[in-house]
Design a binder for these strands. Structure first.
Lengths: 361, 361
DNA sequence: TTGTATGCGTTATCAT
DNA sequence: ATGATAACGCATACAA
């Protein structure tokens, strides 16, 4: 059958459009017929083939515009044997971070033919890897972005390579080859933050570390330890308490730390949410921040600036990292030059607010 | 050509698998040949056709399992002339809400063949509608979810209907037919919250309203007014200040309200973030919360429980609403019964914490 | 109950 | 420079 299914028809040697109100979208066939060329020529126009007569190109483009023709992504994907989907796989680190990543990713993906499909998973579930494998095998995304903490899972990265799926891992330290990674320098950032406390005169500085097994937790703890060592302050194990990155664990950890005597005059918390827990405990104990207790957090989430007093914290350039990751994933494919897409290491900065002061000030 | 491209080949009357390491995925053809049936029969198995010999079904299923065969979604979409994509369109209300929605949506979509593709837009941009139209015409998603505040845009809803795209709007009040809507009862919820303040003895209650033109802002303001009226308290225009749902605007609004004399003894803020701004201003002025100033917020974002004192606020069941929305969108198509999918009205609840007390207590 | 032929909208091959 | 024809992987109409 040579006549388009619904969109138009030949009438007396002339192609006549149907009423478009309910008709399905125009296809490449409709364009071809109206322009009086073959499908392949239209395809060439769409894909910006260089060898093409300027006149025919213009004519075809005109018809495309008139019809409002849009190529069908599914058909394209089938013919090209590759699609234009970027997957975002994460296990709910924190809302602000996930959203910042989505924003950064989409800034690059916008104006390309790529779409972002989000796929949260449940770390902890033993079936997680199988679940991700099914997702990858089914959708065969063009590439995927892995967020911490599951980005630290080397087995997962191996799975991607096995399946031939492009991937970029986001993390607190370089944990893969540059093309497959965007990393912040958590260790150095924390070293600077704790150094800031030391400069302010603090010597008894508590650490609320992240959960065991998290790369970010390890890096940040190392940063803390390096800062103390550099200042010649001995590291006391009792001044290090682990939390799970959640508010309540921050409260528990603060309680443990503040039970010491002499008590610490400052606390570095490995993220803002736990730092907020420290604020609570300080208030319950009648300790004024920052006069009697200085606090620094990590992440610069909204809570850091909304809490009282505003929290000094470490900000890492999440959106920037996400943009870089997107460029690594679709850089060539989308024509967007990877001018700065080669960057894979990003510096975090200390945001100084009101939660730090000299001890006993 | 009758022989599979890469996956296996006929050898001496027997179908032999190739080395799978680098081969592309098995297709329906491979399954058909290995099982000794036609493609159509395999297709019937996949789509759970009722008229099918149990033996052949089992045999085919076995082969499918052995091969790890997964139907290609793009090919399916092309043949079925409909895909399995659900779009989430929003203009970044707040991170927690977007993420909660995603979570609720995906809870339903999990185990179905649907995937979620997120598409933030820029309200304010005059090209927004055209941008969304392009997205819809290109991807032709099976359905889309619209988040406030753009969900309130009737032109957008009309666009969906014009394009024949299923949609569900999420909002602060019923703004569409039940099948196309999930709504919370903001007005009633705020009435209750402000009623709570009145019961505690407050008579001078300030309102920080949301931005003009937002349905949620209007509903919440109505709730405030209804509560005052019910208690016979005259509504003073000077006790109502508009913000833009952001922290800083909450501070500005609080400054305006607290400049009054006599000053209000309580403030209802139309969201938590602005309420946090009120906390800041109160602290700057040396006003203790809740003794000298009671505060209630809206949303129950993490900040509400992390701030000091913990904020009394209104929690609306976002994830539940998102689940209901997902059921409305894919209910029949996914086989998931719409047992409670018919619900389109959801009740919010007042979460009582420590930011409310009797005036002057 | 199962198979054959054909279509979905696009791109690739190989002509011309 | 352009076109005819055959994929791509799956589903439907119609036979058998």
């Amino acid at each position: 059958m040579l006549v388009s299914r619904t969109f138009g028809e030949w009438d007396n040697g002339r192609y006549v459009l149907m009423d478009m109100s309910k008709a399905s979208q125009p296809t490449i066939n409709d364009v071809a017929r109206l322009a009086g060329v073959s499908k392949k020529t239209v395809s060439r126009v769409i894909n910006a083939s260089p060898l093409l007569n300027q006149d025919t190109r213009k004519r075809v483009e005109q018809v495309i515009a008139e019809l409002g023709y849009i190529p069908n992504p599914q058909a394209r994907a089938l013919a090209l044997r590759r699609n234009f989907l970027i997957g975002l796989i994460h296990d709910n680190p924190n809302a602000q971070m996930v959203l910042n990543v989505q924003q950064g990713l989409l800034e690059v993906l916008r104006d390309t033919e790529f779409e972002l499909i989000v796929h949260p998973v449940d770390r902890g579930s033993p079936a997680m890897l199988e679940e991700i494998r099914r997702f990858l095998e089914r959708q065969r995304p063009y590439g995927i972005m892995l967020l911490p903490p599951i980005s630290e899972n080397d087995t997962l990265a191996a799975l991607c390579r096995e399946l031939g799926v492009r991937y970029v891992r986001m993390g607190s330290a370089p944990l893969d080859e540059p093309p497959n990674m965007v990393a912040s320098n958590d260790r150095e950032a924390v070293r600077g933050a704790v150094g800031h406390l030391i400069e302010a005169g603090h010597r008894r500085i508590g650490l609320i570390a992240g959960p065991h097994g998290f790369r970010s937790a390890i890096e940040r703890q190392h940063g803390y330890e390096e800062a103390l060592e550099a200042a010649g302050i001995p590291i006391q194990r009792t001044m290090i308490v682990h939390g799970d990155y959640r508010f309540e664990s921050g409260m528990r950890a603060a309680d443990r730390l503040l039970d010491h005597s002499p008590r610490p005059t400052a606390v570095f918390s490995s993220n803002d949410e736990m730092a907020a827990g420290v604020f609570h405990v300080a208030r319950q104990r009648g300790l004024s921040v920052p006069q009697e207790l200085s606090i620094i957090g990590f992440d610069d989430t909204p809570i850091a600036s909304h809490i009282w007093p505003p929290l000094t914290t470490v900000r890492w350039p999440i959106a920037t990292m996400a943009r870089a990751a997107a460029l690594k994933l679709v850089g060539e494919a989308s024509g967007k030059g990877s001018s700065d897409g080669d960057a894979s290491l990003f510096v975090s900065t200390l945001i100084r607010r009101a939660s730090v002061a000299a001890p006993g000030s």
